[in-house]
């Protein structure tokens, strides 16, 4: 693993969590202070910032965002915050390092939906949600979406049902906290 490889991964817009098995090599490199600083300097030269906090790492842009970038940035954050709100509605105590099973999530979703139909509104929001009737299929997409965005990770490739919650969940929770804090301060 070198800076070029690290850039190749992080420049895909991924958040790398220290508790990820898939990116453990990169996470270990980023934990190394000299590698982190060198990488940070390199990114700085090309207009990006390397941010590492609370057990996760990502790239931010220094300069202004174009209109297209702004829209993409807002939409992605909104969808992921909504996804985490949905996860927490299903499992109120779920947090980084926690483990969930897909089939349990489906059954939990069905139970909650019986009492509170509004949970379906959250799933309906997602742009990828084409089949709005087959809930198991939607939840499968939901898991794939969380996996793709590095919030969940399969515990093992052999056990397809068991997922680990990555540290990156704290990134989105911190955004929510900042907004709500701003609201309360106002």
């Amino acid at each position: 693993m070198d800076i070029a490889k690290a850039f190749e991964i992080l420049s895909q817009g991924k958040i790398i969590s220290a508790n990820s098995s898939k990116y453990s090599e990169l996470a270990n490199m980023l934990l190394n202070d000299s590698f982190f600083e060198e990488f940070k300097e390199t990114l700085n030269l090309i207009g990006y910032r390397l941010i590492g906090e609370d057990g996760y790492y990502y790239i931010a842009k220094k300069g202004k965002l174009t209109q297209g970038e702004q829209q993409l940035f807002i939409d992605k954050n909104k969808e992921l915050i909504l996804a985490i709100a949905l996860l927490r509605q299903l499992y109120p105590r779920l947090d980084r390092g926690g483990v969930i099973h897909f089939l349990q999530v489906v059954s939990q979703y069905v139970n909650i939906q019986k009492e509170n139909g509004s949970i379906k509104d959250k799933l309906s929001y997602f742009s990828w949600n084409k089949n709005k009737d087959d809930e198991k299929e939607i939840l499968e997409h939901f898991f794939k979406y969380l996996e793709k965005n590095n919030i969940l990770e399969k515990e093992s490739e052999n056990i397809s049902d068991k997922y680990r919650v990555l540290n990156s969940i704290s990134y989105y929770l911190s955004i929510v906290e900042s907004v709500e804090k701003g609201d309360n301060d106002a």
Binding site: G13, I15, Y48, R49, I51, Y58, I59, A60, K61, K62, L65, E69, Q70, L72, F73, I74, K76, N77, K78, I81, L82, A85, L86, D121, K122, Y125, Y171, I175, V176, S178, V179, E180, G182, D183
Partner: peptide, 27 residues
């Protein structure tokens, strides 16, 4: 915040993200 997003009343979230975009994950 999820309810605000669904109802498209998420101005504070947008404003906070855009004004601090240099701190957040670049998409």
């Amino acid at each position: 915040i999820a309810n605000k997003i669904i109802k498209e009343q998420d101005h504070e979230l947008k404003a906070m993200l855009l004004s601090n975009h240099q701190l957040y994950l670049h998409t």
